[in-house]
């Protein structure tokens, strides 16, 4: 079961780093920069755009990316699939804490390599110690030679895609909301970076771009979604979207973290489909959700298979 490691070192060279002097970066657009920057500056809220406006914005992004990275990058802005409500299951009996999900996610979602942004935090607990309520004895920085370590267990935490999200409730600009398919998304262009959502989220799922995010051009995943893994700019908040660019297709791929998990601990499916693995799981296993006393109603179910 050991994965074959083929390590190739490709260090970030300053030249290869896509230092995105973002359009939205500097305080105000440059006077000489022309109309398009003002257009971006005054761009509407995503949910208030018409279909045509969305298409225009997407096209503009694609041309910008081509100019910036010299690479064809596809940006989708497609809406939710009908009769779909995404749900996720995570088998705590199986998880070995290998962090492959963390980096599959980083790779898939074009997360900033420097400064480091990761959507998934894998927590390690000592067996038999208190853990589940405030996760107070969690260790995120464990670093053994091999996992799993005897006497420990692991719990990856990412956005729980709550049905009653605390984060969207507090956002002053409605820059983050829950889509009809249950995914909580952020309009990175509408977010003002007040970080109130980060204070409100009980799961540490929201990540802030403290500096301009960077990613080596050759590592860019060119399949992106406007509400998902497109490039973010400094000063906005971002989060896990269950790989919206993958799952919001018919047929669509499993999220990257599900795909990479070496022990099959991660389950994904449509909560409205009674034959989906996630529904069968909820019905046959004793599941629990993180911090249930907060009544956020996550669609992320933890369970024990043994």
């Amino acid at each position: 079961m050991e994965g074959i490691y083929m390590k190739r070192r490709d260090f970030l060279k300053t030249a290869s780093v896509a230092v995105a002097l973002g359009l939205e970066g500097i305080a105000l657009p440059d006077r000489d920069a022309g109309a398009s920057i003002w257009e971006t500056f005054f761009q509407k809220h995503f949910r208030e755009m018409t279909q045509a406006e969305k298409e225009e914005v997407v096209k503009k992004l694609e041309t910008d990316y081509k100019k910036r990275f010299g690479k064809d990058i596809k940006v989708k802005a497609n809406g939710p699939l009908p009769n779909v409500l995404y749900g996720y299951g995570l088998d705590l009996t199986r998880c070995v804490g290998c962090r492959r999900c963390v980096y599959a996610c980083v790779t898939e979602n074009n997360l900033s390599r420097n400064p480091q942004i990761q959507y998934i935090s894998v927590l390690r607990f000592k067996s038999g110690e208190k853990w589940v309520d405030d996760l107070e004895d969690a260790d995120k920085y464990y670093n053994p030679d091999v996992v799993p370590e005897p006497g420990h267990f692991y719990m990856p935490v990412q956005c729980q895609q709550c049905e009653k999200p605390a984060c969207t409730k507090v956002c002053p600009t409605q820059a983050t909301w829950k889509e009809p398919d249950g995914i909580v998304v952020v309009d990175y262009n509408w977010c003002i970076g007040c970080r109130y959502c980060m204070a409100a989220c009980p799961y540490g799922a929201r990540k802030f771009n403290w500096a301009q995010p960077t990613i080596p051009v050759e590592q860019i995943n060119p399949q992106t979604h406007y509400l998902g893994n497109r490039f973010k700019h400094r000063g906005c908040v971002e989060k896990c979207t269950f790989c919206i660019q993958r799952v919001r297709e018919n047929p669509g791929r499993y999220p990257a973290c599900v795909e990479i998990c070496p022990v099959g601990a991660r389950k994904f499916g449509n909560l409205l489909d009674e034959k989906s693995e996630i529904r069968l799981l909820i019905e046959t296993k004793r599941v629990f959700r993180l911090k249930e006393h907060l009544n956020t109603n996550p669609k992320f179910y933890y369970f024990f298979s043994l």
Binding site: D10, L12, Q116, Q118, Y141, N143
Partner: peptide, 24 residues
Amino acid sequence: IKPLPLPVRPNEITNIKGTSTVEI
């Protein structure tokens, strides 16, 4: 199995030398 690298501590989020590729 060997775990992948741990995340950086909050005061070192820009202290990253580079990236490397693993194939799994």
